[in-house]
Write a protein that binds this DNA or RNA. Structure first.
Lengths: 156, 156
DNA sequence: CCTTGTTAATTGCTTTGTTAAGTGTTTTGC
DNA sequence: GCAAAACACTTAACAAAGCAATTAACAAGG
């Protein structure tokens, strides 16, 4: 396209951040549409998924597991508490902590959307290739283990 | 962790959307820090990259290339125009379109950060493996080609 | 012409991301 | 014990995402 100069950086098609962003958009766009019907955002869905899978936990851990920042989580949980999708109570042993648990209503949201979600990922597997999908997940998980930019420093 | 029931959905560690989100966070966190020093957000950086690579283009195409929604792009470009990083002019042939081009100042931002960016990705290549990184990019690009959820419908 | 339809960009509104500062609570070191 | 540090959230402020509705400019048909 642009022959005016030798590119300083790799082409954006070979840029990892941009490729990740596009891939996420590709995958999430249909799911977002699906969830919108229940008034559940992508983030709320992640929260429900994590709580349903791993059981009650404090907000810091939940934030890490659901890939949300604590300030965002605070606001989202407030809304979800209003929707009765989750419940919170302060930890008796450490009153700084607040323990979050999924409610029956929250679990129902998961039950309701599981078939659609499964259908979507089944289609994805078929069109993309089951083996390739596993490969991709392995590569992504390995990348997440790298903990870049802190290779000498402590790991919080 | 949670033995209360058989999970309806795959474990979040094997969930593609979550894995993509974590990977993006892993990669972008150090870059964001790097760019913040120049008052350039991650999004502005993407815009500069795309314009520098492919030359002037209208906003719709730029939005697609930089993975931004048109409304977001409108507001970001207004700021970038104020910073003199980009310039806009209406297309003479079609006065609905506005053509965006990178300025010298914009190009300077890229030049200034290219060494850091290159160093970061070199480190990434070394620690993650050059071959594996290529594999990952190939898999991601293939995924982006799938255009999921519109397999019978028209492709706008 | 001129109505209808389409497209490009903008604006409004609500939610979320991001950073920094603030508020209690617990832990640590003296 | 007790002041200082560390910790778990919460709040505040602003940028950006995401969605719907609007405006302005083209395109086609009658």
């Amino acid at each position: 396209m642009n022959d005016r100069h030798t590119p300083l950086l790799r082409r954006t098609a070979r840029s990892l951040p941009i490729a990740l962003l596009r891939a996420r958009e590709t995958v999430m766009a249909p799911l977002r549409e699906m969830l919108a019907a229940s008034g559940v955002s992508e983030q709320k869905w992640r929260i429900l998924r994590v709580l349903d899978e791993a059981g009650p936990m404090d907000q810091s851990l939940l934030a890490e597991q659901a890939c949300l920042q604590l300030p965002s989580l605070t606001r989202i949980l407030r809304a979800m508490e209003g929707q009765k999708l989750i419940a919170r109570h302060v930890d008796a042993a450490d009153r700084r902590r607040s323990i979050v648990a999924i409610t029956d209503a929250g679990h129902n949201v998961i039950t309701r959307h599981a078939p659609d979600s499964i259908a979507f990922f089944t289609e994805l597997e078929q069109r993309y290739g089951k083996k390739r999908l596993q490969e991709l997940l392995d590569l992504l998980n390995d990348l997440n283990k790298l903990d870049l930019g802190r290779q000498g420093t402590d790991r919080r």
